[in-house]
Design a protein around this nucleic acid. Structure first.
Length: 587
DNA sequence: GCCGTTTTCGGCCCGACTGTTTTCAGTCG
């Protein structure tokens, strides 16, 4: 049973309780939803976490015992007894936007839809047959809305569908440019998971400071790429834009804009933690500001900036990337938040594919070493590491591999003489083969300073063997960096399975680094695992894996992953000056 | 059912928008 499977059972149990008796089960519902969220974001398998006695947020003794039943037997008496009160056809509808547990239940019971496999299509037919409008509390308009939601669901717009961060960035940029030109727009900020730099983003959220909200919202829904208005009120609005993506807008005056920024940046659980803390201090927080609870009629305390908002609570300002309720609230109260790494701290990029004709095992870079170095200088780097893929071993004899690498070494020596403003490091991205051998032999290693090692084949290897494979690959003295460790491609490919605890332990013990790969659809290692690894003391290198000069600008995505993992400069080896970094690399 | 920020017992965020209602329920973020 996967984390996802178990999470869905928790979500369904919460929905079932909502249907059965929401008031009676209010706090179990919240608890199950929290546990669901926690499992969805858990970077390792829940089975492993529990068997090692790891604490998972939102999972206490009761839920833990039910999960253990599920893992052991595939069933849980407890969840079965909750779920049996509700037709199974309710649950698929929960992924459809605008449909929650209550509506789903009303619909499937009123229409006698029993089959979870066909419930979506059955409901579409019911809408087309005008069967919804006659159900109590439904009407013609809600029938129309449900039909549209179902059709959009069929096209891929579900509650779970999220886009990779870089696509969200591109879309947000377009909308932001439009919004900035709006009437009476004082400030525009993209917020939500985009501002927190999550690897995937659901909706694109914006906040605008203005003194004429109606005008701004009218302007918002005239966006040229709009498909339809989802909702439109006096202070907020949502629209669907082409491509089926949702853009949300909140609007507020400048004087209380700080609270709005804070609110709309989230995350939900960060905000809940803040508000629960404030309640104990006697204040109720919202996007409007802070209200003193005991003195009714008192004006709302407004905040112009986020800094003022946090300061009011006795907290330091929390960088958006940290707002996931992973302990940042406590740290901000104690004034000991980490001083997170920033883009300007990065002094070099070590994973660069140039167009040097290395006749590689995989793809080649587009631009010359000289061009890549020119860009490195513009970015203010002290050093750049070339890490082309190793020469293909199926198309070359060993001696051909040596001679290619010898030519490459000569080329690098030559460049080192002519280009003095950036230090050049002679690396190579070497495949870890299915049984853990590296793709090139010891003699070939003599032509390079050190190697990045990574997996590019046979992804479906069982966890234990995959872990051994990686550790074998890393055991070579010149193998110093484990690149894109999970192999995942966002929305395209799940990563392979690894025993990360063993990998992290090995890296710490043997002075190896884990790469944070900044390739926009990789963002690998993932931020949750960076968070765990950093706590243990793992060191990282942030690399772009650039195959062209412009891709070297992706470094900020990698820095964001590191920031979400609470990394400070000391955790990231390529913040070291050249001499120190090179010393580590070749030690 | 979870959790520890005045708490191991007694709390549990807050508000906007829509549709079908004549005062509210449901969904969302």
């Amino acid at each position: 049973m996967t984390n996802q499977d178990i999470a869905m059972i928790l979500r369904n149990a919460a929905a079932a309780y909502t249907i059965i008796d929401e008031k009676k089960h209010l706090f179990q519902i919240v608890a199950y939803q929290k546990a669901y969220d926690s499992l969805i974001h858990l970077p390792i398998e829940v089975e492993d976490a529990l068997s090692e006695g790891q604490k998972i947020p939102g999972i206490g003794p009761s839920i833990e015992s039910h999960i253990k039943d599920l893992i052991k037997t595939g069933r849980s008496k407890h969840f079965d007894s909750i779920l049996k009160h509700v037709p199974a056809s309710v649950f698929p509808l929960l992924d459809v936007t605008t449909i929650g547990p209550k509506k789903a239940y009303k619909l499937v019971t009123a229409l006698k839809l029993k089959d979870p496999e066909t419930v979506i299509d059955d409901l579409i037919k019911a809408c087309q047959g005008n069967k919804i409008a006659t159900i109590a509390t439904f009407g013609a308009k809600s029938q129309e809305d449900i039909l549209r939601a179902l059709e959009e669901y069929k096209l891929g717009k579900t509650k779970l569908n999220r886009m990779a961060l870089p696509y969200a960035f591109e879309l947000a940029k377009k909308v932001e440019e439009y919004l900035k030109k709006g009437p009476d727009v004082i400030k525009v900020f993209p917020l939500g998971s985009l501002r927190r730099m999550r690897d995937t983003v659901g909706d694109i959220d914006f906040a605008i400071a203005t003194n004429t909200p109606e005008k701004v919202i009218d302007y918002f829904v005239k966006y040229p790429g709009i498909e339809r208005v989802i909702e439109k009120g006096p202070t907020s609005s949502s629209m669907l834009v082409s491509g089926g993506r949702q853009v949300d807008l909140l609007v507020q005056d400048e004087n209380s804009f700080g609270a709005l920024l804070q609110h709309f940046t989230g995350s939900k659980y960060h905000n809940v933690a803040l508000r629960e803390y404030a309640l104990k201090k006697g204040y109720s927080l919202s996007e409007k500001g802070a209200k003193l609870l005991k003195e009714r009629g008192q004006p709302m305390k407004a905040f112009r900036t986020e800094e003022e908002f946090y300061k009011f609570l006795g907290m330091d300002w929390v960088p958006p990337e940290m707002r996931e309720n992973r302990g940042e609230v406590e740290a901000a109260l104690k004034h000991n938040l980490p001083k997170l790494i920033e883009l300007k701290d990065v002094k070099g990029d070590l994973h660069i594919h140039s167009s040097f004709p290395i006749e590689p095992s995989h793809d080649m870079g587009n631009d010359s070493m000289e061009d890549m170095l020119k860009r490195a200088a513009e970015l203010g780097y002290e050093y750049l590491g070339f890490s082309e893929h190793n020469p293909s071993t199926s198309n070359h004899t060993k001696s051909q591999v040596y001679s290619i690498l010898a030519r490459r070494k000569d080329k690098i020596e030559q460049i080192r003489k002519s280009i003095k403003n950036v230090h050049v490091i002679n690396l190579l991205e070497v495949d870890i083969l299915p049984y853990g051998d590296l793709a090139i032999d010891d003699k070939a290693f003599e032509y390079i300073d050190a190697a990045i090692v990574s997996i590019h084949s046979v992804f479906k290897t069982p966890k234990k063997e995959m872990t051994t494979r990686v550790l074998n690959g890393l055991s070579h003295p010149k193998a110093r960096i484990f690149a894109h460790p999970s192999g995942r491609l966002i929305n395209q490919r799940e990563g392979y399975e690894l025993d990360y605890d063993r990998i992290f332990e090995y890296c710490i013990k043997n002075n190896k680094a884990i790469e944070i790969n900044a390739w926009p659809t990789r963002l690998d290692l993932t931020d949750q695992l960076v968070f765990e690894a950093r706590k243990l003391g793992v060191k990282f290198v942030i690399n772009t894996d650039a195959h062209a000069t412009f891709q070297m600008d992706n470094m900020f995505y990698g820095v964001s992953v590191a920031r979400r993992g609470w990394c400070e400069p000391k955790d990231i080896l390529n913040t070291l000056p050249y001499e120190e970094f090179y010393k580590w690399l070749t030690s």
